[in-house]
Amino acid sequence: MASTTETKQKKMLILKSADNDEFEIEESVGVQSETIKNLVEDGFTFVPLPNVYTKALIKIIDYLKKHANKTDSNDEEIKTFDKDFVNTTFDDLFELVSAANYLHISCLMNMLCQTIADRIKDKSPEAVRKIFHINCDYTPEEEAKIRKANAQAFEGQFDESLD
């Protein structure tokens, strides 16, 4: 395997999204993703990502670039960036979470799941269903049974808002 320090020129990778858009990034940025890292270790420089759409990929590349330059001094900056990054719609969050899962970027996964969890934690099941467009596949009898089985969890006040 060629060492990266051998030449001064940075090694580049090409990522191809599901919409056939191509993005060139530095290898050091890309390898934060376990999926890309494995491919790079196998000698690939062209990485097709059939499960990741352009919109999500652009955001994820932004994220990787920011986090690749992490030092002690720009801690605050990265925090602000992360905060802005997750300040988006639920649809976008799900798009990102699937992409991050496919790419195996664990720190991004944690952050996104935490954001989703934080946003739905006080909501009623009905509100959560609407937010996620969940098709309830229970019969009313089944649902009543589930509610009864976990009765202690369904007491108290809920937040019915959808944002």
């Binding site: 799941c113 969890a117 934080d118 739905i120 006080d122 959560v128 976990n150 202690q152 969890a153 108290g156």
Partner: peptide, 17 residues
């Protein structure tokens, strides 16, 4: 996501689907 939810909200999630 479930592990990051508070205990009660996680239990509620069972009725979603």
């Amino acid at each position: 996501i479930l592990s990051l939810l508070p205990t009660k909200s996680a239990a509620q999630a069972t009725v979603l689907s």
